[in-house]
Design a protein around this nucleic acid. Structure first.
Lengths: 160, 160
DNA sequence: TGCTATCCCATAATGTCCCATATGAAACCA
DNA sequence: TGGTTTCATATGGGACATTATGGGATAGCA
């Protein structure tokens, strides 16, 4: 099961190219032989959201669960799926980010790739620094939610 | 079922490599053929937390129970998956710790691996010494809490 | 003809692989 | 029982591969 983990900041060169971190390339490589990533602007943040080719399937499924109809749903579809792009890797594992994407995420000379499991995000480093600090505080505060995937009562190891 | 037990202190060489204790390697080896460990910085301590690949599977499973675009989920994805790394063993059972990890745990020339059952932690030896002493005191203080998992009335052995 | 997207190559830094050695525990043998 | 061999682990260092990044050349497109 491919997975995007870790945080990596890479340069965006004069041509708008950026190296996708090697681990992400591996995670994005699907069974379909598609050699690239799917990206769309995050609708809540100044960031891009991406993943392998299957990512858009997930997004659609998420939209389905929102039970939106008519205008609202249409709005999401246009805002997300309509803006999405499939970007191929060049021979060196880079992609060229379209101008609208650079814009939306206020990307300048650098791009921070943040692994989030089945997908990843791309942020401007300065913007992400704040996001990260806030997330960390929040996580510390709420960590009991996560501590216990196996917990039965309060013991640490669940019997097999 | 793999289990991480015991405490081992190994050297971190000039390249940032450290041998994962043999027993931990065995415990980390999952069914997926993944040959390495998953690590992320602990929320509350200057330590790293790790396990086999299934560690992040558990995390993901826990996260899947949260709303896809909820605030909590985002916080944990960033704080855990965003900070995590999957590190492969080299031919000799070592991993290379990224600089951020050395930083977070204030690791210098040595790393203390502490087994914690389903997962393990990595500490700087000096830091862990304090932690350990404190934990011992605490345990002594609270020992009445501990002797009851099998207790029926007050007898020692549980009958079959 | 300019703009942009590809493709190709060069390079520096990093990471991975491989081998050599030290150490200690277990097995083996006389 | 005392000594020796064997084996796995931990550790050091060199060789090689991969990655990130810059830049040139080429091909389409307006």
């Amino acid at each position: 099961m491919p997975r995007f983990v870790g945080t990596f900041t890479n340069k965006i060169d004069a041509k708008g190219r950026v190296s996708v971190p090697a681990g992400f390339r591996a995670a994005a490589a699907g069974p379909g032989g598609f050699n690239g990533v799917s990206l769309y602007p995050a609708f809540t943040d100044a960031a891009l959201e991406g993943g392998g080719r299957d990512l858009l399937d997930d997004v659609e499924a998420a939209l389905d669960r929102l039970k939106l109809y008519g205008e609202e749903r249409e709005a999401f579809e246009i805002a997300v799926l309509g803006e999405a792009r499939e970007l191929n890797f060049d021979a060196d594992g880079r992609v060229t980010l379209p101008a609208e994407f650079l814009d939306h995420a206020t990307l300048n000379g650098q791009a921070t790739f943040v692994g989030r499991g089945r997908r990843f995000q791309i942020w401007a480093p300065e913007v992400y620094a704040d996001k990260r600090a806030a997330a960390r505080d929040k996580a510390r505060e709420l960590r009991e939610l996560l501590d216990s995937p196996h917990a039965r009562g309060n013991g640490r190891e669940a019997a097999e």
